[in-house]
Simulated assay, not measured.
Amino acid sequence: MSTVYEAAALLPDPAELRVHLRALAVLDATIGDDPQFCVYAFNADWGPGEEAALMDNGSGDDFSVLFAPAGVLIRGFDHESAMSPYGTDDEEVWPGVVDEVPAALLPLLNDPAFRDEGLDFTRVTVCLWRETGDTAWRAGSAIDFPVGHESPDGSGFLLHLLTDRSPETVQAHFEDYYERPVPLDAVRHVLAGHPVTPAIAAALSPAEVS
Rank of each mutant, 00 (worst) to 15 (best):
H79F: 08
E80P: 00
E80K: 03
S81V: 03
S81E: 02
M83C: 05
S84N: 03
S84Y: 02
P85M: 05
P85E: 02
P85C: 04
Y86V: 03
G87E: 09
T88H: 02
T88Y: 00
T88R: 14
D89A: 15
D89M: 08
D89Q: 11
D89N: 03
D90L: 11
D90M: 06
E91N: 05
E91C: 06
E92W: 00
V93A: 00
W94E: 02
P95V: 05
P95E: 07
G96P: 03
G96I: 06
G96D: 08
V97K: 08
V97H: 01
V98T: 15
D99P: 01
E100N: 06
E100W: 02
E100Y: 02
V101N: 01
A103W: 00
A103C: 01
A104N: 01
A104S: 14
A104G: 01
L105I: 10
L105T: 07
L105R: 02
L105C: 07
L105W: 04
L106E: 14
L106I: 12
L106A: 06
P107S: 06
P107L: 07
P107K: 04
L108K: 01
L109Q: 05
N110P: 03
N110H: 13
P112N: 13
P112F: 04
F114W: 15
F114C: 05
F114Y: 15
D116V: 11
D116K: 12
D116S: 12
E117K: 11
E117C: 07
E117L: 11
G118C: 13
G118D: 13
G118S: 14
D120S: 15
D120T: 12
D120W: 10
F121T: 07
F121P: 03
T122P: 05
R123V: 06
R123Y: 07
R123Q: 15
V124D: 09
V124E: 10
V124I: 09
V124R: 08
T125D: 05
V126F: 02
C127W: 03
C127A: 14
L128S: 09
L128I: 06
L128C: 11
W129M: 09
W129K: 09
W129S: 08
R130C: 13
R130S: 04
R130D: 08
R130E: 11
E131T: 14
T132V: 15
T132D: 11
T132I: 11
G133I: 13
G133N: 08
G133F: 12
G133P: 14
G133C: 14
D134P: 01
T135V: 13
A136K: 14
A136G: 01
A136D: 12
G140H: 10
G140S: 12
G140W: 12
G140Y: 11
S141F: 03
A142E: 15
I143P: 09
I143V: 15
I143M: 09
D144V: 15
D144R: 14
